[in-house]
């Protein structure tokens, strides 16, 4: 009977593609990570764990891990907090919520690479608009006093702003102390709107009667109601938003490749960029594969943490 075999036609293509395009590459990467393989060279040597050894011992790769983790630790908390804050504010507005929602979501839709180039212009140390605005504040007495802290009696030169007014404002992407933070800023700018819509969806799924019950129970302040109802009810959303933001920010590439190429002095040398540079540009496929495997390990850990939190939660039927 036809029906007993027809499913093979339905699942066959998907299985073949999953195996060939997702599972097989993982194995290829795993195998190549123990070799010194490169394209154009017919033979290769097994070199054991040498690639992994390099990853943990060479300072370049230490910088890579530092850059990636710092980036994630900057972007995830801030973009999640901004997303939640924006969602809470927008949900409580009487008018105009839709407008803010559209505006904050705009960067999610826009081509990141293109917007990164615009940010690069905006952050240009000399002609860029950002430093221009910051500089213009130096000449306005009260603003300078406020931002430099001298209104509190501090020495303006001791503060970041006062010091920058006297010397000059940072080079941003060209300064190794600022580059990663600047890249992270663009990441936050681009990503928090996504978190915001996830939180807004989470908020609409909180039953209104729970808030009313909290009112009746005596949760009089907005903070009490947030603690008693909103925050616990957003539990699943929190887990999801944090995981997806982490995985997304681990994958940061566009901004780094277009704006800093990992520099200055490897301060923005994040994992996916390292993978690209070693593997594709320098044809060092062994070390590139090793980075791939470590990267997959990170993603797996993040996902397992998510699964753990999701399963621990008892859902409200």
């Amino acid at each position: 009977m036809g029906r007993s075999r027809v499913h093979l036609w339905f699942i066959g293509p998907a299985i073949i593609l999953m195996m060939g395009l997702l599972i097989l590459p993982v194995f290829v990467a795993a195998v190549l990570s123990f070799t010194d393989y490169n394209l154009g060279n017919p033979s290769f040597n097994w070199i054991g764990v040498e690639n992994y050894d390099r990853l943990v011992s060479r300072s370049t790769y230490k910088k890579m891990f530092t850059a990636s983790l710092t980036y994630v630790l900057l972007v995830v908390p801030i973009s999640v907090a901004l997303g939640l804050g924006a969602a809470l504010l927008i949900a409580s507005l009487r008018i105009g919520g839709e407008l803010y929602k559209a505006v904050f979501f705009l960067p999610v839709m826009a081509t990141l690479l293109a917007m990164a180039i615009v940010w690069e212009f905006a952050l240009h140390p000399i002609v860029g608009v950002v430093n221009d605005i910051l500089r213009s504040g130096c000449d306005v007495g009260w603003l300078h006093a406020l931002l430099s802290g001298s209104w509190l009696g501090g020495d303006p030169l001791q503060s970041w702003y006062g010091h920058a007014c006297a010397e000059d404002f940072p080079l941003w992407l060209g300064d190794k102390n600022y580059a990663l933070g600047t890249i992270a800023f663009i990441g936050i700018w681009q990503g928090f709107g996504f978190n915001m819509v996830l939180y807004l969806a989470g908020l609409t799924s909180v039953p209104r009667e729970l808030y009313q019950a909290a009112h009746m129970d005596g949760a009089d302040s907005a903070w009490e109601r947030f603690r008693l109802v909103t925050w616990p009810m957003l539990g699943p959303t929190n887990v999801f938003v944090v995981t997806i933001s982490s995985i997304r920010s681990f994958q940061v590439f566009d901004t780094v490749e277009a704006l800093t190429r990992g520099g200055p002095s490897k301060s923005t040398y994040v994992m996916v960029y390292a993978m690209f540079e070693k593997g594709v540009k320098q044809n060092l496929l062994g070390i590139g594969s090793a980075i791939t495997i470590v990267f997959l390990g990170f993603v797996l850990i993040l996902t397992l943490i998510q699964v753990y939190f999701v399963n621990r939660r008892v859902h409200y039927a």
């Binding site: 039953p207 009667e209 729970l210 009313q212 019950a213 009112h215 009746m216 129970d217 005596g218 949760a219 009089d220 008693l228 109802v229 616990p232 009810m233 539990g235 008892v314 859902h315 409200y316």
Partner: peptide
């Protein structure tokens, strides 16, 4: 509401699920 000394039973019960 909380100072009116009333209690309410809601249609969906509105128990705190967590």
């Amino acid at each position: 509401p909380s100072r009116r000394d009333l209690a309410m039973v809601f249609q969906s019960y509105a128990l705190y699920p967590h």
